[in-house]
């Protein structure tokens, strides 16, 4: 498998901070992989993904994206490979209308107008927002705005999409629509690499791999199953426990049988059904 992102011994301290926000971080991400970054607020997740896009000026360590080592000279090239969606739907909406916003990146890249029109329409159709092309952002819901932000990225066809808590300010319905766009995109022929920061366990569970941040350090990485089965890790880093784990704990309190290892919700359902049948 080809590596699309390599981070080697990355450290960073904000100019006015008294301690480093990123502390000797190294990891790699394969092309086409879906990776979630989890960790409590202030653990350095946003700073980390900003470093990948050259949005902070780190002095120590290296970042390589799609074979290009990030440097002041290569930063615009690297940014072509990465599309970023941020947390606040309002603060990243540049255009005065939906279509204008999607076109923003294409305009920056100097894409000719006929080509631009085609790509704007295709991208808006991909996120199911074409019928709102002429709307102003003030008349859209949060979920719709985030889908427009995604369309702006889809139109640029980057190989990597980074989501920094893109769903955390949305209601459950808005969150669901954004996630289903992502799943759809994974199956399309763009099939971008996805790197998403999230607090939502069901969202993290969809990833192939999790990176766990704590106080500026990458303290663990592994499959969702491996991470979710480590109750101590989850508790010490302030993460939620999966529902299956919470239920198992409650079953134990009632003196009932519990599975010997971590099971996903679906697996626990199966397991309970099997135990029920043995009664």
């Amino acid at each position: 498998m080809t590596k699309i992102i390599s981070v080697d011994d990355l450290s960073y301290q904000y100019p006015d901070a008294d301690r480093p926000t990123l502390n000797h971080i190294s990891f790699e991400i394969n092309a086409g992989e879906w990776v979630a970054i989890v960790g409590h607020n202030g653990s350095g997740k946003s700073t980390l993904v900003r470093a990948l896009d050259g949005l902070i000026d780190f002095k120590s360590g290296t970042v390589t994206v799609a074979g290009t080592k990030l440097s002041p000279e290569s930063v615009w090239l690297v940014r072509e490979h990465i599309g970023m969606v941020f947390q606040n739907p309002d603060n990243q909406f540049v255009g005065a209308t939906v279509a204008d916003d999607v076109a923003f990146g294409l305009e920056n890249a100097g894409v000719p107008r006929p080509e631009m029109q085609k790509r704007v329409q295709e991208a808006l159709e991909a996120v199911d927002m074409w019928q709102f092309a002429e709307r102003e952002p003030s008349r859209l819901s949060g979920g719709q705005k985030q889908r427009v932000a995604l369309a702006g990225i889809i139109a640029m066809n980057p190989s990597i999409i980074v989501l920094d808590e893109a769903t955390s300010m949305l209601d459950p319905h808005g969150r669901q629509t954004v996630l289903s766009v992502l799943q759809h995109l994974r199956r399309s022929n763009q099939a971008p690499t996805i790197l998403s920061i999230t607090h939502d366990l069901s969202e993290a569970a969809q990833a192939q791999r999790l990176l766990v941040m704590d106080n500026g350090q990458l303290i663990s990485e592994g499959t969702p199953r491996a991470i979710f089965s480590d109750e101590q890790l989850l508790e010490s880093t302030g993460l939620d426990l999966p529902f299956s784990t919470k239920l198992s704990q409650q079953l134990a309190k009632q003196g009932l049988v519990t599975p010997k290892q971590y099971l996903t919700d679906d697996e626990l359902e199966d397991w309970l059904w099997q135990s029920h049948l043995t009664m």
Binding site: K246, L247, L251, A252, Q254, L256, S275, T278, M279
Partner: peptide, 18 residues
């Protein structure tokens, strides 16, 4: 809640250590 669910599962699941 998980607690209510576990309580209602008493009698529908085997007891631990049996």
């Amino acid at each position: 809640t998980a607690e209510q669910l576990a309580i209602q599962l008493r009698g529908q699941l085997p007891k631990e250590g049996r």
